[in-house]
Design a binder for these strands. Structure first.
Lengths: 239, 239
DNA sequence: CGAGGGTTTGAAGTGCATCAAATAGTGTGG
DNA sequence: CCACACTATTTGATGCACTTCAAACCCTCG
């Protein structure tokens, strides 16, 4: 009897094309890991034998230099899978993972996934799709860092959080604390604070703690996405 | 009778696991395109129906904003394939392509590749591998832009051009002109020039046109890679 | 030899980082 | 429910890195 119901996994997009047998095997071998804020899940120096599913909280994926400077790769919440690319990299990952706040993840042996991929072309196709999506996000991110200033990067970050079809006044809640958003956008917390103030001067926008009220999405788009290219205007990449 | 020998394709890494039948089909439908410097091959706004193989010269992949600012995605030379990811993006690409200098490419219908992928898991695996590699390069690039200064980025660029096992004096020839290298590294030509001068002050290094003579790889690594993380020291990612 | 693009240099401005310190906010134990 | 400790956030002052604009130089190629 496994610690989790296989039903749990079936409802996660990543596993939707896995065979029942594999779901079963994964469930059997699953481990649940609770993480305090800031505690490390794995380091890029570790040999990767498992992959992970976020079940609660936020997980930060990052790279770290010798002198401690960090570059944030991604920040994931519930139902996102990570660490699976080690399969194609000789069981290594190029990043480390830690809890951005109190979090919980589930881990599974990579070898089970490996076997499934070899036989299941639907799953492979899913992974291709998600990798392509990720590649596009990365391209976009490089563009962001190269062509946009801090305020515009914040603007685009906000736009990706909302449903673009909405009109009128909109309230956006930052998904995690401002320091982390700053890191995610490749800037210092101080810069984030000042750049958000600058954004307030440019467009109608009110900030209360983590909540940001925007009066006109159009204005924000006009300001932030003037330096966007193919993904114009900024939106969540999901297709 | 096709315009190219199928042998030509079989020797390209990308096609090595394609079935003979598909190689044949690709050869039959191949088109050869000659490009003058600066001429555009396709735009991200076009619908993608073909993918490409570089046969001569250099092709620049880039994204462009409304006001003309460019962000270079990649710069490819002979035997590299591009545009194939459109298969997983509803026949769109998120970048445009143009000749960085006089160049030649071959184009093939995406639909042939699509059919092959559906039946050929070896090819799929190859593509996964190359996408993973690309993703890692992108992560590295984001790190570069975030954590390194201009001189260090140049240093790492040079390191990726040479065989790290060599010792003693080494001569590196820049693969394309300095303006393009600058764009590839996300900086202005002026900044490139000045940053290269700064590099000269830091380590023993001589520049004559496109040729750069380095006396000690170690010194360069020490200077440039102090802000590198997992891929330390900088090297060509090929495995 | 001359035209044009690539490259370098100079001068000035801008944006972000850094360091320091104040302020706001949050969770904990009493 | 309050006080304290600790963290997150903001603000100020300053410096550095890169960009921008302008102009000179150099190299190549017709």
């Amino acid at each position: 009897m496994s610690i989790i119901k296989s039903n749990t996994l079936k409802n996660i997009p990543f596993f939707k094309n896995c065979s029942d047998k594999t779901i079963e095997a994964l469930s059997d071998q699953a481990q649940i890991i609770d993480l305090e804020k800031g505690s490390m899940l794995f380091s890029n120096k570790d040999k990767a034998e498992r992959f992970y599913l976020v079940t609660k909280g936020w997980i930060k994926l990052y790279r770290e230099t010798i002198d401690g400077a960090q570059s944030v790769v991604d920040i994931l919440n519930a139902n996102n899978v990570f660490g699976e690319v080690a399969l194609f990299q000789n069981d290594t990952t190029s990043f480390s993972a830690e809890a951005a706040e109190r979090a919980q993840v589930m881990s599974f042996p990579l070898c089970i996934l490996k076997k499934e991929i070899e036989n299941n072309s639907n799953l492979t196709m899913d992974m291709m799709l998600s990798m392509t999506r990720h590649a596009r996000q990365q391209d976009q991110e490089i563009e962001n860092r190269t062509l946009k200033n801090a305020s515009q990067r914040i603007g685009c970050f906000l736009l990706r959080l909302v449903d673009q079809r909405k009109t009128g006044e909109i309230v956006i809640k930052l998904p995690y604390d401002k320091t982390l958003v700053a890191a995610r956008l490749g800037m210092q917390p101080e810069t984030f604070s000042r750049a958000l103030n600058k954004l307030k001067d440019q467009i109608d926008l009110h900030v209360v703690g983590r909540e940001i009220r925007i009066l006109s999405l159009q204005d924000l788009t006009k300001y932030a996405c003037s330096a966007c290219s193919s993904e114009f205007p900024c939106h969540d990449i999901k297709s």
